[in-house]
Amino acid sequence: MNAATLFGLCGAALVGIGLYGLITNPEPLRKILAFNLLGSGVFLLFGMIARRAAAAGLGGDPVPQAMVITAIVVAFAATAMAIALVQRLADETGRASISSDSSDAVDGEGKS
């Protein structure tokens, strides 16, 4: 197993970890964290694909690398927006939690 595959597996596992956190963690802030984990797992998959396709004297295929850079910036923007929302919500309600209905539970079942 080469390094690319190893990091690819790591990415796959991180996608799973992030997804699990996103579904089971009721706190919005933790959901945002989980989303970032999920995202970084996906980026690592891109990284594996880039590294696997190393050619022409380059350490990796630059196209997926460039895509990851774009995606990282987008993910940051998303995180900033989500956090701003959570904070505004916390300011308005005094607590930072999505309403206590069973939406999260249903999310989990919905996808399974």
Partner: peptide
């Protein structure tokens, strides 16, 4: 909505990565 949408786009992105690969 944002959380659902972000999950949606990140899943879409996984697919993109695999297809490119």
């Amino acid at each position: 909505y944002l959380l659902f949408a972000l999950l949606g786009s990140i899943l879409y992105l996984v697919g993109t990565a695999l297809l490119y690969g």
